[in-house]
Write a protein that binds this DNA or RNA. Structure first.
Length: 650
DNA sequence: GATCCTCGAGTTCT
DNA sequence: CTCGAGGATC
């Protein structure tokens, strides 16, 4: 870095910081900021004579803004030094052991939120102060009192300062943003900004509505006479504060690495966002001996997690046509590594979304991926526009077959029933898992079959022969025979699979089961009245079904003859068991596939549903359980792990 | 008429 | 897994 580059970098950092801290509207990612910041630090270390007074390295924390009364902290709130990998960790440990060899380390999550300082006197909460610059913050006591996880009184009479992080749970964050979008307000970039913004509302009734959560991480001014940090923390939890979802006392690099890896792996399953793990020396006397540098304590460090947010560029927006004819836009971005995965595409859902977020071709965007969640474009970095970005024009004609598109609610749909994309996807759907479950007939194979002209509709599948298949590229004896076997195997499937496989609009797995149970093969002649009378089926679905039968009666009858799908045998009453008549939801991965467990439970008379509500009787969870488990917890629905479920089986 | 519960349909990456 | 909308329920 040269001197003039250094100056530019400082200005850039200050601009980022202003947007981040003061305007609660970041214009870059943490990663970009951190990288640049470290370059500046490196330059300043080499060229101390050049250091500019306004450099962000020359101050602690963010600035204090107007609007609230300023208030000094009883003792200073420090920031933490960041480390990013094992080498950094080993270097830090070496440094730390040099100061004091006989120590252990207390590790807990570093929450991604806004720091808060609480002052209690005579057992009462008297002040809540934002971090500010670490010495002076803003007095926000009224707002703080709306946070339910902050006790207003504690059983500790002496003056004590409790520090922690105010966060917004991920679920709540999504809700708030969804609401802001519908009300035409700019969404928050991340839960941290939402938390910080909510905390600094002038009207505390707004703060109250945001469902903030306080998680304590330490103590400022205090007189808790404990020799060990983790004991102090236990005293705090005993006062009525919330515990961290994970913590550990470690003695070696290996132990620290292992708890770090565990947290990284589990970070998605936590309700709040984490951005790292904090490692602190556990012995209080050693902490005092080690003391502080100008900026940070020597006895603690933040071990950052890999970033889940990256900046990338929208190269193109392509159009996909599904089996129902719905046209969906997908953004193609510069390939970017996020948390171990290379992200190249991000769904845009529908065309309103492009407009709402004002995404243009060539735009720099912040892209986000958390766990299994599909990559999402969070926001456009408007200040990075050069002027040559192009607005994306909503198509009027199908990208595949060129027929006219029609807007149906939020979806833009191709109306041509024989559009290649629709036909190919419909055949693939016919063969998919919840339908006839034909092995080896995925989208790629269907495309090959369609292009060769051998298969132009689902009936053609059953006229395939070994000879005709062998004329195709990529098909040798083995693969061809496997496919023919799989097709043969589809004969005699359960009847609901056959109905589902037809891909009738609004008729999915559940409705197909209802129809199969009620009418069996006679569903093609069912009266409208009788259809509407079925549980869960109304006018819309009935009309869609009747229209489909009217148009496709011959195809349906041909398939009935070929497939000989099994009409459902009269269901035997399941014997009495804990799951009979109960509504259950499955989440996470278990020793068998969820499908297998689902049919086992259904055989016992349970209704296996896909979403959790307060009517759900049990949520059965496996490894890596997701948001459904969280929802069960918040609704107070009973949860069972796989072993507990098996224990209840007859 | 409003609200809650479910289902259907769409998508990404390992 | 999440969104949006159909269906059921009050």
């Amino acid at each position: 870095m040269k001197k003039n580059q250094y100056k530019i970098a400082v200005e850039e950092l200050n601009l980022y910081a202003k947007h981040y801290y003061v305007l609660d509207n970041p214009i870059t990612t943490d990663e970009v900021y951190d990288t640049l910041y470290h370059e500046v630090v490196a330059y300043e270390a080499q060229n101390p004579q050049d250091i500019i007074a306004s450099s962000p390295t020359q101050r602690v924390g963010d600035s204090v803004s107007e609007g609230f009364v300023k208030e000094a902290h009883l003792s200073r709130m420090w920031s933490l030094e960041d480390i990013f990998n094992r080498d950094d960790l080993e270097a830090w440990l070496k440094k730390t052991y040099k100061l004091n060899a006989n120590i252990s380390f207390y590790c807990e999550p570093k929450y991604d939120g806004a720091s808060l300082d609480l002052v209690y006197e005579n057992g009462k909460l008297i002040k809540g102060i934002t971090r500010g610059d670490g010495r002076i913050g803003e007095l926000i006591t009224q707002n703080v009192k709306t946070i339910r996880s902050i006790p207003l009184t504690i059983e500790h009479q002496e003056l004590i300062e409790i520090r922690g992080e105010v966060v917004i749970f991920k679920e709540e964050f999504e809700k708030i943003n969804a609401r802001r979008l519908t009300e035409g307000e700019a969404p928050f970039a991340n839960p941290r900004n939402a938390a910080a913004g909510s905390l600094r509302q002038l009207d505390s009734s707004i703060t109250a509505k945001r469902n903030l959560v306080f998680l304590p991480y330490g103590i400022g001014e205090n007189n808790l006479e404990e020799k060990l940090l983790h004991k102090k923390m236990q005293r705090i939890y005993a006062m009525g504060f919330r515990k961290p979802p994970q913590s550990a006392i470690c003695n070696t690099v290996e132990e620290i690495e292992s708890i770090y890896k565990k947290m990284v792996q589990e970070r998605d399953s936590y309700e709040m966002m984490l951005d790292g793990m904090v490692i602190k020396v556990n012995e209080i006397q050693s902490q005092i001996d080690m003391g502080y540098t100008v900026k940070v304590p020597r006895w603690a460090v933040a071990y950052k997690f890999p970033a889940l947010e990256k900046i990338t560029r929208v190269k193109d927006i392509i159009l996909q046509v599904g089996r129902t004819g719905a046209v969906t836009p997908v953004a193609i971005v510069e390939p970017t590594e996020i948390d171990g995965a290379i992200v190249e595409r991000a769904t845009l859902h529908n065309f309103d979304e492009i407009q709402r977020k004002d995404i243009r071709l060539g735009d720099a965007v912040i892209i986000l991926r958390s766990g299994d969640v599909i990559p999402k474009i969070m926001k456009v970095l408007v200040h990075k526009r050069k002027g040559d970005e192009k607005e994306f024009v909503k198509p009027t004609h199908c990208p595949i077959c060129a027929s006219e598109l029609l807007q149906e609610d939020v979806l833009l749909k191709c109306q041509n029933l024989s559009c290649e994309a629709r036909v190919v996807n419909a055949i693939a759907y016919f063969a998919s898992k919840p339908c006839l479950n034909i092995d080896g007939l995925g989208i790629k194979i269907v495309e090959t079959l369609f292009k060769s002209g051998l298969v132009t509709n689902v009936v053609d599948l059953f006229s395939l022969t070994l000879d005709s298949l062998l004329t195709l590229e990529g098909f040798k004896e083995k693969k061809a025979q496997n496919l023919l076997d799989a097709l043969e195997n589809a004969k005699g499937s359960e009847y609901w699979r056959f109905i589902n496989a037809l891909g009738i609009e609004h008729i999915g797995e559940v409705a197909s089961k209802t129809l199969a149970d009620t009418f069996g093969a006679a569903f093609v002649n069912a009266e409208r009245e009788a259809i509407i009378n079925c549980d869960g089926i109304g006018e819309e679905m009935a009309d869609s079904l009747l229209e489909f039968i009217r148009v496709n009666r011959q195809t349906i009858e041909k398939l009935q003859v070929i497939l000989q799908a099994k009409a459902p045998t009269k269901k035997e009453e399941a014997t009495e068991n804990p799951f009979k008549g109960k509504t259950v939801v499955l989440t996470g991965s278990m020793s068998q596939s969820r499908g297998a467990i689902k049919s086992m439970l259904e055989a016992l008379g349970a209704k296996v549903s896909s979403s959790v509500s307060k009517k759900t009787d049990f949520v059965i969870y496996g490894e890596d359980a997701g948001s459904k488990y969280d929802k069960a917890m918040s609704l107070g629905v009973k949860t069972l792990d796989e072993a507990a479920m098996r224990g209840l089986l007859p």
